[in-house]
C-alpha cells in the first residue's frame, strides 16, 4: 500500500478522533465530576453552533463568535442545572430521563426559532497535499484544538480554586462540606462548564458540520459510548477511548467499508465493556 495513502489515513483518523473528543469533552467533565449523564448534551452542541452562526452572520468575526457561543451555552447550562439537575443529585437514571425530556424540548424550540434549514456561511478553508492525496486543513487544526482543550481543562482542574473544590467534592464529599465548599455552587459551575464545552464543540465544528436542529444527535451516541467506556477517570479515559474508538473506526472505514467502520466502533465498545465492566479507567490511580 502506498505510503502517502497510509499517512493521509492516519492523519485524518487522528482528526476524526479529535472531533469525537471535542464533542465528548463536555459530557466527560460532567460525568467525571458530577456523575451525571447529560442526554441533552447534543442539543447544547447544536445551540453552540447556532449561536456562532447567528453571531457571525451579524458581522462578528467567526473566531470571536466562539467565546460568545460558549458563554451563551454556559448560561443556559447554569439555568438548567439550578432548575432541574440540582433536584436530582444521586439519581443517575432519573437525571438521564429528565435531560432526555429537555433534549426533546430544546430540539423543538430550535425548529421554532431557526426553522429546519438555516443558510450557512463561508468559513475559511484550506487544504494540504501529501503525495497524491489532498486533505482538508481545518480538521487537522482540530487535532491541535483538542490537545489545547485537554491541557486547559487539566490546568483548570489542578491549578484553580474551582478545580480543587470540584475534585474535593467528588473525592471527599463530606470533607469538602466540612471545610465549607459549597458543593451546589461548584456543581452548577461544573454543569455549566460541560454545557459550555458542548457549545464550544458546536461552534468549532460549524465549518465542517452544518447547523441543523438535530446536528448533535450524530455525535451524541458515540460521545456517550466513549465517555461510559472511559469510566470514572473521565478526562484521560475519554481521550484514550476517543482515539481508540474514533480513530480505530476511521481507519477501519478507510481500509474496508464505511459499514465495517461503524460495526468496529460498536463491537469494540462492547468488548471493552466486557473486559472492563466498570470502564477502562476503573482501576487507575489518577483521578482526572
Amino acid at each position: 500500500m502506498e505510503i502517502d495513502f497510509l499517512v493521509t489515513v492516519l492523519l485524518s483518523s487522528l482528526s476524526s478522533a479529535a472531533i469525537l473528543l471535542i464533542a465528548a469533552m463536555g459530557l466527560a467533565v460532567v460525568f467525571g465530576l458530577m456523575g451525571v449523564i447529560n442526554l441533552a448534551h447534543s442539543e447544547f452542541l447544536m445551540m453552540g453552533a447556532y449561536a456562532a452562526l447567528t453571531i457571525t452572520k451579524a458581522g462578528v468575526p467567526y473566531l470571536l463568535s466562539i467565546p460568545i457561543a460558549v458563554a451563551i451555552t454556559m448560561a443556559i447550562g447554569a439555568v438548567v442545572e439550578i432548575l432541574i439537575i440540582s433536584r436530582l443529585y444521586g439519581r443517575l437514571f432519573d437525571t438521564m430521563l429528565a435531560t432526555w425530556g429537555l433534549s426533546m424540548v430544546l430540539l423543538q424550540l430550535a425548529v421554532l426559532l431557526f426553522g429546519t434549514a438555516t443558510p450557512s456561511i463561508n468559513l475559511p478553508q484550506f487544504n494540504i497535499s501529501i503525495g497524491d492525496y489532498q486533505l482538508a486543513g481545518y480538521p487537522l487544526i482540530l487535532i491541535g484544538v483538542a490537545v489545547i482543550m485537554l491541557i486547559l481543562i487539566y490546568l483548570l482542574m489542578t491549578k484553580t480554586t474551582y478545580g480543587m473544590q470540584a475534585r474535593a467534592s467528588i473525592q471527599e464529599p463530606e470533607m469538602a462540606q466540612a471545610i465549607g465548599i459549597e458543593s451546589s455552587r461548584v456543581n452548577t459551575f461544573t454543569f455549566a462548564l460541560g454545557c459550555g464545552l458542548a457549545g464550544f464543540a458546536g461552534a468549532v465544528l460549524l465549518p465542517i458540520i452544518p447547523a441543523t436542529p438535530s446536528m448533535g444527535m450524530a455525535f451524541a451516541v458515540k460521545s456517550f459510548l466513549a465517555v461510559v467506556v472511559a469510566g470514572p477517570v473521565a478526562l484521560t479515559g475519554t481521550a484514550l477511548t476517543a482515539i481508540g474508538l474514533g480513530g480505530g473506526a476511521s481507519i477501519t472505514a478507510s481500509l474496508l467499508t464505511s459499514v465495517a467502520g461503524e460495526v468496529f466502533f460498536f463491537i469494540i465498545t462492547a468488548v471493552l465493556l466486557w473486559r472492563y465492566p466498570m470502564g477502562i479507567s476503573a482501576k487507575w490511580r489518577r483521578k482526572l
Partner: peptide, 9 residues
C-alpha cells in the same frame, strides 16, 4: 451506515 459522521475515510 446510518450512524456515520466521519467522511474522511
Amino acid at each position: 451506515a446510518l450512524t456515520v459522521t466521519d467522511y474522511s475515510p
